Computed example of a mutant assay.
Amino acid sequence: MQSLSNRFVYNANPSRVVFGTGTIESLPSEVERLDLKRVLVLSTPQQVELAEALSSRLGDKAAGIFSGATMHTPVAVTEEAMKVAAETGADGILAAGGGSTTGLGKALALRTGLPQIIIPTTYSGSEMTPILGETADGVKKTVTTPKVLPNVVIYDVDLTMSLPASLSGTSGINAIAHAVEALYARDKNPIIDLMASESIAALAGALPAISLDPGNTDARRKALYGAWLAGVCLGAVGMSLHHKLCHTLGGTYDLPHAETHTIVLPHALAYNASAIPDVIDRLRGVLGSENPALALYDLAGAVGARRALKDIGMPEDGISEACSIALSNPYWNPRPLEGEPLERLLQRAWAGSPPVME
């Protein structure tokens, strides 16, 4: 057993989770339990078929479908969905899909107070957090409030089976990023340490297996379990440099969310390594590597993910701007943020070079 701190605080967010295979069958009973009569179903344009299937499952309790969810939760899209919710008389929200749809559901819940059910189909983990990130005028801002917590999360392994292996890899490493930063959060605690370690181990083991065999049900189950735990970690403690950089890059340059996290994570961990020797020791055991930052970089390679920001749309001349934005309103971080080392970090991430612990 790990040694316990003399004193710590653990904030547990209220949630109801239904986890397993075929759990989507419980949707009508969960709607009934919440006493909902008119449920608005949310999705991205790419997952409208899933939205239609869920709407059919709801029967006369389906208020309609809004399939305009998109990454980084633009306020303009939320406003469109608000109009649909009002026009259809919705008294509840069902968000099905990845982080984009979850974000839209949270944004609607924040503004309307409507109860929400979330059915994740990726490994983002955001469904378990009281955090909402919204984008307006090219700037992504986050708010933390229990108002955006879902009433129910239904994890159905079956709904992740069709997630392409490439997307599974980046979505899963995005979840790992939540758990890694939870290990060195300012408000870390032994309970979250256990969840984070379990999450990282589950995902790091499952993702390469999914890459080799996307139909591996056991690997899919482990990945979804790991993502759930990562989401709990993200929702319970504060995040640091990694998340600040990803929010800056995503909001400013409209980069894909999960891929940005996948690329930045090894470099952010390497930047902080000298300030968190205990966490590095723990990650060595969890990842089975003397260099955890390099292990995460290699994991991205093993799942076929792109490892360079330049390959996902980041302009090289934006590196200095991104540093300035990140430094202007920084999150707490175990190592003080310094301009030149931060620029070197982003330069390596832009080029796709291996992480370097300075």
Score class of each variant (00 low, 15 high):
Met1Val: 14
Leu4Ala: 12
Asn6Tyr: 09
Tyr10Thr: 02
Asn13Asp: 05
Ile24Gly: 13
Leu27Thr: 01
Pro28Asp: 04
Pro28Phe: 01
Ser29Cys: 02
Arg33Ala: 15
Leu34Asn: 05
Leu36Met: 11
Leu40Gln: 00
Gln47Trp: 00
Val48Ala: 08
Glu49Asn: 15
Ala51Glu: 01
Leu54Gly: 00
Ser55Ala: 15
Ser55Gly: 15
Arg57Asp: 02
Asp60Val: 09
Gly64Pro: 02
Ile65Thr: 08
Thr73Ser: 09
Glu80Cys: 00
Val84Phe: 00
Ala85Trp: 03
Glu87Asn: 12
Thr88Pro: 00
Leu94Thr: 07
Ala96Cys: 12
Gly97His: 01
Thr102Lys: 01
Gly103Phe: 06
Leu104Gln: 00
Lys106Gln: 13
Lys106Glu: 07
Leu110Ile: 06
Gln116Leu: 10
Thr121Ala: 08
Thr122Arg: 07
Ser124Phe: 04
Ser126Lys: 08
Glu127Ile: 02
Glu127Gly: 05
Thr129Pro: 12
Glu134Phe: 09
Thr135Val: 02
Thr135Ala: 05
Asp137Val: 03
Thr142Gly: 15
Pro146Thr: 11
Leu159Ala: 07
Pro164Arg: 04
Pro164Ser: 07
Pro164Gln: 13
Ala165Gly: 04
Ser166Met: 11
Ser166Ile: 09
Leu167Ile: 08
Gly169Thr: 10
Ser171Pro: 03
Ala175Ser: 14
Tyr184Val: 13
Arg186Trp: 10
Lys188Ala: 13
Ile192Gly: 03
Met195His: 11
Ala196Ser: 11
Glu198Ala: 15
Glu198Gly: 06
Ala202Asn: 15
Leu203Cys: 14
Ala209Gln: 14
Thr217Asp: 06
Arg220His: 10
Ala223Gln: 07
Leu224Phe: 07
Gly226Asp: 08
Ala227Asn: 07
Cys233Thr: 10
Leu234Phe: 12
Gly235Asn: 09
Gly235Ile: 04
Met239Gln: 14
Ser240Pro: 05
Leu241Tyr: 03
His242Gly: 06
Lys244Val: 11
Thr248Leu: 00
Thr248Asp: 03
Thr252Tyr: 12
Asp254Gly: 04
Pro256Ala: 08
His261Tyr: 08
Pro266Ile: 11
His267Ser: 11
Ser274Trp: 09
Val279Lys: 03
Ile280Asp: 08
Arg282Met: 10
Leu287Gly: 08
Glu290Ala: 13
Leu296Ser: 07
Asp298Tyr: 05
Ala300Gly: 15
Arg306Phe: 02
Arg306Tyr: 07
Leu309Phe: 08
Ile312Asn: 02
Glu316Lys: 13
Ile319Phe: 04
Ile319Arg: 01
Cys323Asn: 03
Leu327Gln: 02
Leu327Cys: 11
Arg335Pro: 01
Arg335Trp: 09
Glu338Leu: 12
Pro341Ser: 12
Leu346Ala: 07
Ala349Leu: 05
Pro355Val: 11
